[in-house]
Design a protein around this nucleic acid. Structure first.
Length: 180
DNA sequence: GTCGCGATAGTCT
DNA sequence: GACTATCGCGACA
């Protein structure tokens, strides 16, 4: 079973909620995705792909399922999954999730026992994702995307994207408000 | 719980 | 030379 990454990027983003992101480096670590954002191509001023392909964003223009990892604020890594047709530059930013396997390993990587993966930089650290994994396939590579139970649609909130300065009103952030 | 702020370095103008 | 698709901490409440 492979994830379905076809269709408009904002639809794919919402669909990825409940999917799992898996790495198996020192230990198997698994996160259930509960926060994502959609980024478009040359028609989305907030997207890294807006000005066309560059060395950094090349993976965004890859085939659906290509992992795009970039450094944020010079410090953190952020992970995206390219969607749609190659050349479009569309991708879904994986912003957050909850750890369901390998928690002990994640705690060691994060250096703390709370807030393990509730942010894009924290999530990559939790799973051990770095720029080395940029351009790999989430179907066959070291960082895997696997389908999981879809969340209750009533628990999904749609909001504007976080931390951007352009196109700030486009409602392309999707969050699962689980439990609380 | 919220708010403000500094760190930090690659990428692009 | 400016600008980030962020985080953790400390100060308050």
């Amino acid at each position: 079973m492979t994830p379905d990454l076809s269709g408009p990027v904002e639809i794919v983003a919402r669909r990825l909620l409940g999917h799992r992101l898996v790495t198996e480096f020192e230990d198997r670590t698994v996160v259930v995705i509960d926060e994502v954002e959609a980024y478009g191509g040359v028609d989305d001023p907030a997207s890294h792909a807006y000005r066309g392909p560059t060395t950094r964003n090349a993976s965004m223009f890859g085939a659906a399922g290509t992992l795009y990892v970039y450094r944020s604020y010079g410090i953190h890594w952020c992970a995206n999954v390219a969607t749609g047709l190659a050349g479009k530059g569309q991708a879904v930013l994986i912003r957050g999730g909850r750890v369901v396997e390998g928690k002990q390993t994640v705690v060691r990587r994060r250096g703390r026992t709370d807030h393990l993966a509730d942010g894009p930089g924290k999530l990559t650290q939790a799973l051990g994702i770095t720029g080395d994994h940029d351009g790999t396939s989430v179907f066959r590579g070291p960082v895997r995307l696997a389908p999981g139970p879809a969340p209750d649609p009533a628990a999904i909130r749609t909001t504007p994207r976080i931390g951007i300065t352009r196109e700030v009103d486009r409602p392309w952030r999707f969050v699962v408000v689980s439990g609380q």
